[in-house]
Design a protein around this nucleic acid. Structure first.
Lengths: 192, 192, 192, 192
DNA sequence: GATGAATGAGTATTCATTCAT
DNA sequence: TATGAATGAATACTCATTCAT
């Protein structure tokens, strides 16, 4: 009988979902555990049965949405340049995830444990991607002088930086323009 | 007798300096006004004589350091590509400013007034830079198809994104490698 | 198992009692929530678990004591004139309630919510009394020209005004004299 | 050269006037000395040159308005009953003074010095009135059984109590009705 | 596991008053 | 006398977390 475990898992997932929504909407620091309890119709005690910490909730929310929102490139049979260009063109759909990551950044700066947890999760994921990028470099015959690790970091940094700019309501380029810029930059990296 | 004004200005500057250091070190949310008072040997009342808010202190710190740390490109007689490449190569020197901006991002997400103040300051600065970038586009004969506004946002976003990655202790590229990447990307934009 | 509710109710009552005593003794503005916590051996958090506000405590204290201290006239089988005269003769026993009401007046002038809460409570009670006074007017055959609503307000105002004079330590009439005055005035209203 | 003294007197009067307006509007506790300084275009230091205390300002405001607003009865050649009736009929014009006295009551309850100052001022005034009332009793041939001291206190208390009721926004009788009630009561006291 | 009352340290901010200039 | 910067104690209220039931 796995029923109770299932139930637990569903509860947990619902909690993470609500936490994500609240953190994105109001900011991690401005959300209290009681807010979350109210929204999920749980008690704060019940939440602490699932998560050690408020910080753990943030980490879980980030882990969940990193997987969902940022897919690896060249999964859809298209080449690197095309995949990245499409990703830039559709940047607006990931605003929620970026907001979450900005919250995660500020929380990590304050809280050593958040930092190390997020570092672990994100470093692992970055390591995955690095491997994929190297494969791409070989398969697509990209100039070996291009440091694909640096390219990866640049693409991540740009994405995250958009999140920072968004938190200030700075006006960002139109999606088409942003995609074109990616296309041009990527062309220079993958060789015409 | 400008002495009292001078003194006030000096006091204010010292306050902003200490606030910057504390915000960078411990994070905006984790610094209390009393911490700051202790560190500056002032009373909290005196601090509130200079700044309406704790948030105002953060804004002041950011304004101060944006001007100091991010110089306009092509001020040293070098061309655009060279200037940006140098800036990327020396990215490590701006870690403090990036940390401050990450704090500013999280604070802006929570606090409407911080958001609008930072938006005002940063939008103005970005507008300045846009003008400069357009001049560069003409003077250096950069392909008119390149949207220099988007380029500017990309360069800003990358810088800010480094700040986010740094807050997670993610390993960043070596300065030389990072500079080379900039050089390659810029080449594609300015037309070698 | 009504135990926890009972306990809560008892805790609340004890809190209101202590708050009343403190407000009467030191004045609403001069009593801090911490004072109250100390006196009741509770923590301030626990107090805020029972009351949203310091103001709510004042309102609760007033509501409690209005009911206790000001009995409706002609409940003891005596006629209107006798009942009011007795009430005036025993005015000294209600000094605490009057002090509380003076605090409630000053607080209501500053705080919109206190004002509306007290208005609600007191207007309801005054409406009750008005009904009772009209019944009395009929039953005792009081001159229909006498506006019993105005009489009620006058009796209330006199009581409350004593509270104001008491707060200035102004010397008040001896109870007997005060009762005689009531007797004379009431005679003119009820028709000897 | 009395000029400087004149100026001081004028400054003081302006200060008292503004303080009165602010205390009535916002409540004594909610008015800061800086508010008052802003409103009067003075500095807080200058205010402390004229008054030892914020409390002294309240006392001064009350003293000033007691004299202005509550004139002695039978000054206009009319008899006692007529004078009081007129006073009740025009009660609405004295709402500001009553508000001030409610503030004075709450302040006196907290602050021993305010209490004693107000007591001194008000007791003196009440003593004056008592003398006047006794004269009236003789001159108008009022029944010697009527304790005119108690009557005076009753009239004062009613007035003050209206102030308390007003602070709760309780609906008061229409002026005509209120005047009629006074007329009826006074008739019973002065002998038809 | 769940509950939700209790904990109690912690925070930003205010304000009457002082005093060097 | 006037100034207004500085004082610094004081306050209401919040909130992550715990734990007896």
């Amino acid at each position: 009988m796995t029923a109770p475990l299932e139930k637990t898992r569903a509860t947990r997932a619902a909690l993470v979902e609500s936490a994500t929504a609240l953190f994105v909407e109001k900011g991690y620091g401005a959300v209290s555990v009681r807010d979350l309890a109210r929204r999920t119709q749980m008690t704060s005690g019940a939440i602490y049965g699932q998560f050690r910490n408020k910080a753990d909730l943030l980490v879980a929310a980030i882990v969940e949405h990193i997987s969902l929102d940022l897919e690896q490139p060249s999964r859809q049979g298209s080449d690197f340049r095309t995949a990245i260009t499409r990703q830039w063109r559709t940047y607006r759909s990931r605003a929620g995830m970026r907001a979450l990551l900005v919250e995660g950044a500020a929380a990590a700066r304050v809280d050593e444990e958040v930092r190390s947890q997020l570092n672990e999760v994100l470093s692992a994921r970055i390591a995955d991607w690095k491997r994929i990028y190297h494969d791409i470099q070989e398969q697509e015959g990209i100039d070996p002088d291009v440091d694909m690790d640096a390219v990866l970091i640049m693409l991540w940094a740009t994405e995250l930086g958009l999140g920072v700019l968004e938190s200030w309501d700075v006006e960002l380029p139109k999606p088409g323009v942003w995609g074109q810029l990616a296309d041009r930059i990527l062309a220079s990296l993958v060789g015409q």
